[in-house]
């Protein structure tokens, strides 16, 4: 997949991704996507193009485990999030919803860079704007299977349970 980098800082918590009070009124990703990151940048949500890639510093998605912080991102047509580390609940919610979490060094990525995420064997990222290649951590087998299926919903529809 190739997309435009949308860059955020470190320690972005789930309340910054989508405010708790928003999910009180709706759980629909197509509604919630309009409020993505509103606390940090009120204009951000309107500027998202499908295929954009979120890029952040360490500890992305810390704070509450609320899954709408993933589904609102996926619902906006963002297929992957790149960060050197994720909060564990965000990471597992991403996997379970088919949003690819890419653990890699993001320091040399700038707002608007064109990035390609290669998913052949393991994971790698290429910054098309700078020509730089960035190594990414591989995903364990069961996580791959869930992401490849498109998330836990299609996975369970197909298999009825974990295949272990």
């Amino acid at each position: 997949m190739t997309g435009r980098a949308r860059v955020f800082a470190s320690d972005i918590n789930t309340d910054y991704i989508i405010a708790s009070r928003r999910k009180r009124e709706s759980l629909d990703p197509q509604v919630l996507r309009r409020y993505l990151f509103e606390e940090l940048d009120p204009d951000f949500a309107a500027s998202i193009e499908p295929g954009d890639l979120l890029v952040a510093g360490k500890n992305f998605g810390c704070g509450s485990a609320m899954e709408v912080a993933v589904t609102a991102v996926a619902g906006a047509g963002i297929p992957a999030v790149l960060a050197p580390s994720f909060a564990r609940t965000y990471y597992r919610n991403a996997v379970n919803n088919g949003l690819l979490p890419v653990v890699c060094d993001t320091r040399a990525i700038h707002e608007g860079d064109r990035l390609t995420v290669l998913r052949d064997q393991g994971l790698a990222v290429r910054n098309e704007t700078t020509g730089e290649a960035i190594a990414a951590a591989a995903l364990p087998k069961i996580m791959w299977e869930i992401i490849e299926a498109g998330g836990l919903v299609p996975y369970f529809r197909r298999h009825g349970d974990f295949r272990v």
Binding site: A65, E67, R88, T89, R92, I142, F156, D161, F162
Partner: peptide, 20 residues
């Protein structure tokens, strides 16, 4: 540990969860 809503649904159906 904290989990997501999709995990909870999977537990309701199969009683299990994947954990690292």
């Amino acid at each position: 540990t904290g989990i997501g809503s999709s995990d909870l649904a999977a537990i309701m159906i199969g009683g299990r969860i994947w954990l690292r």
